[in-house]
Simulated assay, not measured.
Amino acid sequence: MRYTPAVAGWLHEQLGEAITQGRALPGATTAEVTTFESRDRGYVLKLFNQVFFVEEEPDRAIHEATVLDVLGGADLPTPRLVAFDGDGSQCGVPAVLMTRLPGERGVGIQHAAEIVELAARLHGVSPEVPAAIRWGFQRYNQGLEVRPPRWATDVKLWTDVLGVVASDPPMDGWGLIHRDYNSTNFLSSGDRVTGLVDWLSGCRGPFGIDAARLRLDLAIDGESEVASAVTEAFSRSEHDVIDPFWDLVDAVDLLPFYRGFEAVDGWGDPVRRARLEGFIREAVNRLM
């Protein structure tokens, strides 16, 4: 991908070298993400050029840059912030430049214990770190109307779940969270986890939502063995933050919602629907 003159000029200003193009990285949904080398070091450039997401959260670049900056001194495998253009005044769109970590996206059964240990380190950072981050936990469909999905096979189950998540949440176990702690945001090489990326949702929030997001993501994608290994690793650790309440909150976050009179539903696959219902049924059983 060839960078615009504005982006190339900004990169030259930051790195002191002419960078005119980068290689697109797969998997990004809310930004254009590319990588390149400069003076034998790898970098990742994130350009927030998706109009819908920028309108929803204009400070997305500032958000991720702030989180990366405060994590710079933490014992976590995170990218290091190099520079950012918070309002897009220099690049044409908001941008974040960071170092590139080794490894490929995704994790397996062999990574379960390390994933849980990494969660414990993240959630256990000094209180000064989350205090420096002004963003707090919000539900993805907060303020929007949510109903049992039209494709529900057990409407009563969904109605009960919506009642549970509307109740007061547990207030123990809060601090710094990744918020999108899913398998595609981990980098791994062999048996080792080498990185945790995509920090644009990092915030102060409940630890249980990170455990929920990872296990739900794996379950929906059909990685039931990995999900079970992660659940078992949490249960064996001193950082067992799995909570059926937050499991249900995270599941409801993925429901169809209503923006005005328009229904927004990304659940066309009946197999994934069944996996989602299976996840919430198991959480409800543990809650009872």
Rank of each mutant, 00 (worst) to 15 (best):
V226L: 10
G205M: 02
L187H: 03
H111D: 02
F84R: 13
S89P: 06
G42S: 09
Q21A: 15
Y258E: 15
Y140I: 11
S189M: 14
R273Y: 01
R272G: 07
P148I: 07
I242E: 14
P270A: 11
T4I: 08
G42N: 09
V125P: 00
W246F: 15
V165S: 06
N285Q: 13
W267M: 06
Q110M: 08
Y181F: 15
A212K: 12
P94H: 05
F48I: 02
G136F: 04
E232F: 13
L68F: 05
V146L: 03
V271S: 11
T4Q: 07
G190W: 05
D253F: 04
T4Y: 08
A131T: 05
D75W: 05
G103Q: 07
F186Y: 01
L196T: 08
E57T: 15
V226K: 13
E277I: 00
L122H: 07
G88N: 01
R281I: 07
A219P: 02
A113V: 12
D240W: 01
H63G: 04
V155W: 03
L187R: 01
A8C: 04
A83L: 00
T29R: 14
P77K: 11
P148A: 10
L68S: 02
E238Y: 04
R273K: 06
V125H: 05
I19C: 01
T66F: 04
V67W: 13
G72Y: 06
L157F: 03
S89K: 10
D210K: 01
L122M: 08
V116Q: 11
A229Q: 04
R213A: 15
V197H: 11
G208C: 00
H239C: 14
F257H: 11
S89Q: 14
Y258T: 15
W246H: 14
L71C: 04
I109N: 09
W158L: 11
L196D: 09
F137T: 02
D198V: 03
D180M: 04
W158K: 02
F279C: 03
G16L: 07
G124L: 10
D180N: 02
L68Y: 01
D253E: 06
H12Y: 12
W10H: 12
G268K: 00
E277M: 00
V96M: 04
Q142S: 06
A131F: 06
R105K: 08
E104V: 13
V284S: 04
E104F: 10
M1W: 13
G195C: 07
S89T: 10
R192C: 06
G124Q: 08
Q138R: 13
R23F: 12
M171I: 09
T159H: 03
F36H: 15
G175M: 03
R100H: 05
V249H: 10
L97M: 12
V70F: 07
R236Y: 08
D69W: 06
A8N: 06
I115G: 08
L214R: 04
T184Q: 04
D221S: 10
T78W: 09
F137D: 00
H239L: 12
H123D: 09
H111C: 05
S201F: 15
G86S: 01
